[in-house]
């Protein structure tokens, strides 16, 4: 196996506070890698750096060998990396179906010129996208809500919608930011099953920030632990669980 995502020496400071401090990690192709650590450890900041929402002050980030640390978020998506947010970001006044269709890649109808010049291509692609969107909504069992406004969904349903939405772009790597937070136990099982299934059937790689240690233990192959902006240690879930430094890091910040 080779590294799909390679983060080396990334630092990011806000007004003198080093949120991420010389962090390095690598994510193997086809793995489910967890990123854990106490609150304020810099996990979300690192995610924002990887996905292009923040530009790192220093360091390199490579996706499948291609440097991405200076690309804007949308270009990073095109490179094959998709992400979700800590709280699901449903586009509330769009329908559930439109939420998914909007995420479809290379749609000629999203360019003004094509709306006049290539109407046939636009219509064909839209039909394709709609079919694909329905397939994904069925996958996460939201097809009954297709025409409802996304703002009417519950928090857990929105997380499922977020997942369906990024799948339409067929990403190679998905970053999940606390997928289990605010989700009821039944839906947690469902989300976990989806993640495992997506890796098995589509070979998608996952990098997951998660506080729910049950999830980390059950799903991940590899764990990175961050504390105070640095990567403290890494290993298999079992190794990490026995590592005293990890326990100290958590205890030291009252989590």
């Amino acid at each position: 196996m080779s590294a799909l995502l390679e983060v080396s020496g990334v630092s990011k400071a806000f007004g003198g506070v080093r949120a991420v401090d010389d962090a390095s990690l690598s994510v193997e192709e086809g793995s489910i890698t967890a990123l854990i650590g106490p609150n304020g450890a810099g996990k979300s900041t690192l995610f924002n750096c990887i996905s292009g929402f923040l530009r790192p002050d220093r360091g390199q980030i490579a996706l499948a060998g291609r440097r991405i640390e200076r690309l804007p978020p949308h270009a990073i998506v095109h490179a094959g990396l998709a992400r979700t947010f800590q709280t699901a970001r449903a586009l509330t006044r769009l329908t559930v179906l439109d939420n998914v269709r909007l995420a479809a890649p290379s749609h000629p109808g999203e360019c003004l010129r094509n709306l006049i010049a290539r109407r046939g291509a636009v219509r064909r692609r839209e039909a394709q996208v709609t079919e694909e969107a329905f397939r994904l909504l069925r996958l996460v069992r939201l097809e009954d809500y297709a025409d409802a406004l996304a703002g009417t969904l519950s928090g857990g349903q929105r997380k499922l919608l977020d997942l369906a939405r990024i799948l339409i772009a067929s990403p190679r790597l998905i970053l999940l930011d606390e997928p289990m937070a605010g989700v009821n136990p039944a839906l947690r099982e469902e989300l976990l099953a989806h993640v495992l299934d997506l890796r098995a059937t589509r070979g998608i790689t996952f990098l997951v920030i998660e506080h729910d240690l049950a999830f980390v233990m059950r799903a991940s192959d590899h764990v990175f632990v961050m504390a105070e902006g640095r990567v403290l240690t890494e290993g298999t879930p079992e190794e990490v669980r026995r590592d005293e430094r990890v326990i100290d890091a958590y205890l030291g910040t009252d989590v």
Binding site: P72, V77, R89, L91, R93, L94, D98, N99, L102, E110
Partner: peptide, 28 residues
């Protein structure tokens, strides 16, 4: 009509949440 095209859909998405749309690969 423009509002109901895929182009209009992206714009309506941006109205709701620009970061989300940008994380879906659209140049906001």
């Amino acid at each position: 009509r423009l509002a109901r095209t895929p182009w209009g859909r992206v714009l309506r998405g941006i109205r709701e949440d620009e970061d989300a749309v940008s994380s879906l690969g659209k140049p906001v």
